[in-house]
Design a protein around this nucleic acid. Structure first.
Lengths: 361, 361
DNA sequence: AGTAGCTTCTGTATCGATACAGTACGCGCT
DNA sequence: AGCGCGTACTGTATCGATACAGAAGCTACT
């Protein structure tokens, strides 16, 4: 039988409590006794208090749950997501806490709910979960644990929140394009429709996009363009099958080969924007001259690629979420964090070509 | 006070066990009673059995620990690592199990040991841990939980193991280069020395490299080249500061600008190989003509980049590790899995240039 | 009627620890 | 001696569930 605290206590001739203290509260007993306890424990093959029992008694398990849906692949392919996770992990490590990745099945809602209900965690962070998957954070977590969300509605519902003003960020990017004279825009998003591949999306779809982020970022662009008098329905929205460079290029092909090629393309992530740059290169088009390209995230490679993009503090977002979960500020106001974004202008955007594209160069 | 099983049992007028069964063994009671229990539970705000208490009683927590060291950043920047994790997550999801990421501090060995000792997991998977960090898997896990390793010595120690024959894989790659007439080789590795930046490594260092993978892959190359009569010490080993494209390019610069430029460069990962390709391009050199480049992993982008590389089944490795942990085969022999690798020849390797490189085009 | 067998539910023991109040004891001070 | 106080340790109650043996009730068959 595996040894327990009691086994060790009996062997040393002290009470169970004292052995417990030897591990968890070294200041509560004399160093000699502690050594004696630890060495007999080692002799008996006892490797410290059972984590499960300890958690039950203490009421804290020492890990926070990270909720995903669908493809874990997605979550790990997205550089932003990874940065976020790194920030979260930093905060967690600081609190001696682990991260429990909880892949939630998208098909079996029952099983997903069970995963959440049965997870051994002290709190949840909603990571890559489509908006229509849950109505509110309360639904995700009937257990009353702390949960931090990343969507505006979470913020409005008074839940803990860490995010950015997505729409304001893309509005700034849109205004930049407007100032440069662009009037024909194409937008490339991913996860626009579940299960559908690459292809144009009807623009009136976009208010019902399953992902909050896509919805909001599109809204920001629309606001910038309609404010400048551009008719929004002329904007083409193309869905990419995945958030990858290759799919970005494939999606870009849908608009670049048209006669009324847009003068500017907004990609909802930098990764997709890289694909757009690839597609331009493959066609002998110059980014920032023939077609302006603008991304989102400012991932590390964006600077090298000279990509104009919206920078968001990804690591900081993760860290802030971790801090909220691990020691929530007493003031409710401090439990909602909105981080700043910044438009980083690089060489991939420039004045809209005045002539028709084919006449240039 | 939060409701417990007892609270619900009292409200419904049944025993605690019956309420427990309502959640965990629906076949043990009549559907009517079950409904009655679940609805009063909902009314009382009881959200199912407490996971901690359940884990204590059941002796299973429903998650497996993934051990890292150092930068979580590293673990998530490496495409192979991510593929591995995806495979692991797949197996885990299948068993209704979560993944607990355990970042182990490299500085504070005491704290790291405590993390392992106190982790709420059913088993461990050693993920990105340098070889000199532990002597054997037994040391990592004094609790007697299942552990799966990825190093040969783990296999030799009879522990659970999932891996590839690293040295054989690179030997095949080396033989390919030899057949093409290459005799001057440079090798680019990362994590060659902890804390050191980009730069050449003394070749006699490599048997003491902290990472098993680097050691073994170098060994395979050495074997191939020495078998062909090439003096191994003429091979330059360059350490890259990180496993990134940019650092790969920086490391490549150390050998490409020399007079006796190698005719072939082996990068220990595809990511580094991409950097080498970038460095070649920047110098107007043609991959596969002027300098052959060979990578390792066969990550998705490798095909597009036409990179010759060694393919290893990354996702499969993760999945196999998960299966071993989650339901270990009864036969000891089946608890050690060696997966196949395959040399994928693409355009980045070609015959060694016969004249000196500068004379050719 | 008796008993066998099934389903449905109950009751107690147990998982392995920590919290907290309490005891014992030594020491300095008056 | 008597009192106060701090340190070192003990003992019991408790955390919230599940396992398992057994009881009760009901049908079916001889």
């Amino acid at each position: 039988m595996r040894p327990t605290l009691q086994t060790v206590a009996d062997a040393v001739g002290v009470s169970r409590s004292t052995v417990s203290n030897a591990y968890s509260r070294p200041d509560q007993l004399s160093p000699e006794l502690r050594d004696r306890i630890l060495s007999t424990a080692a002799r008996l093959g006892y490797s410290g208090p059972d984590p499960t029992a300890r958690s039950l008694r203490r009421g804290r398990v020492g890990s926070i749950g990270v909720l995903f849906t669908g493809q874990l692949t997605y979550a790990f392919t997205d550089p932003f997501a990874i940065q976020f996770l790194i920030g979260l992990a930093e905060a967690a490590e600081h609190h001696n806490t682990g991260l429990l990745l909880l892949p939630l099945s998208e098909d079996d809602e029952e099983a997903a709910a069970r995963s959440v209900r049965e997870a051994l965690v002290d709190g949840f962070c909603v990571y890559c979960v489509p908006s229509d998957w849950y109505r509110s954070l309360a639904q995700i977590n009937p257990r009353g644990l702390p949960v931090v969300g990343a969507e505006l509605r979470d913020r409005e519902a008074g839940a803990m929140f860490v995010g950015i003003d997505e729409a304001a960020a893309t509005r700034a990017a849109g205004e930049h394009l407007i100032r440069l004279g662009h009037r024909r825009l194409a937008v490339i998003i991913d996860r626009g429709t579940p299960g559908r591949g690459t292809g144009p999306l009807r623009v009136d779809d976009f208010d019902t996009l399953p992902h909050y982020v896509a919805r909001e970022r599109l809204r920001g662009y629309r606001d910038a363009f309609t404010a400048a008098g551009v008719d929004w329905p002329t904007v083409t929205v193309v869905n990419a099958a995945a958030n990858t460079r290759a799919e970005g290029a494939a999606a870009a092909a849908h608009v670049l080969d048209r006669a009324d090629r847009p003068t500017a393309v907004f990609a909802i992530t930098d990764l997709l924007a890289f694909g757009v740059l690839d597609a331009l290169r493959a066609r002998g088009l110059r980014a920032g001259r023939d077609v302006s390209v603008i991304g989102f995230d400012d991932i590390p490679d964006a600077a090298t690629a000279r990509l104009t993009t919206v920078r968001q503090p990804a690591v900081e977002r993760g860290r802030a979420a971790g801090v909220l979960l691990l020691d929530p500020p007493p003031e409710a106001a401090d439990r909602q964090v909105v981080l700043p974004t910044e438009l980083i202008v690089r060489a991939s955007t420039g004045p809209a070509p005045t002539a028709t594209p084919t006449e240039r160069n």
